[in-house]
């Protein structure tokens, strides 16, 4: 069962990734990019970590894919569609990708991943949270500061009133 689901998710992920690169229509390309990101969320679900899977869906599909769609819709089509098609470059790209994937796979396989016990119970997200608050607290504080500063920056930009709009009456 899990093998069949794994195969289906793999076909979905890789197939839609290829479609995202190859489709002429930018909108369909970004839809298939969503398929890829959703497939990655499916992998996380298969790995018994629904917490990461839900964040993958909420952040990558819910925000980043929407951002890409939005940009694609607002850009005029003629400007970004200069058709430069070079067969040799495409084959070189495919070859380069295959070499990279094979070398990465060789490194991962030789790193002792086969000796990992796969029937270990999944780590609960509460445990990860406790670890963050105890052992990894400097990293947590750093992330919190970065996020807080970016939120404050966003609020400042939203509050900015030096740009005067003519339509604005208030």
């Amino acid at each position: 069962m899990a093998d069949a689901v794994f195969l289906a998710i793999s076909v979905l992920t890789i197939g839609s990734a290829i479609a995202a690169l190859e489709l002429r229509s930018l909108i369909y390309g970004s839809i298939s990019l969503m398929g890829t990101l959703g497939g990655v969320a499916g992998y996380f679900l298969l790995l018994d970590s629904p917490f990461v899977a839900m964040f993958q869906i909420a952040v990558y599909i819910g925000s980043i894919a929407v951002l890409i769609l939005f940009t694609v819709m607002l850009v005029r089509r003629q400007l970004i569609f200069i058709k430069v098609e070079d067969k040799r470059r495409r084959y070189a790209g495919i070859g380069l990708m295959l070499i990279m994937m094979m070398s990465l796979g060789a490194i991962i396989l030789s790193s002792g991943i086969k000796t990992i016990q796969t029937d270990a119970p999944p780590v609960d997200f509460r445990t990860i949270g406790e670890d963050f608050l105890t052992y990894y607290w400097p990293a947590l504080i750093l992330m919190a500061l970065i996020l807080a500063s970016s939120v404050i920056g966003a609020l400042t930009l939203a509050r900015r009133e030096d740009i005067e709009n003519d339509q604005r009456t208030s």
Partner: peptide, 22 residues
């Protein structure tokens, strides 16, 4: 009845703007 129900709610809500704009 899943363990991360509230997060799943936000993941589902994220699909509405995509469908709307498409």
């Amino acid at each position: 009845d899943i363990d991360v129900g509230l997060l799943a709610v936000f993941a589902v809500i994220g699909f509405f703007p995509i469908i709307t704009v498409l």
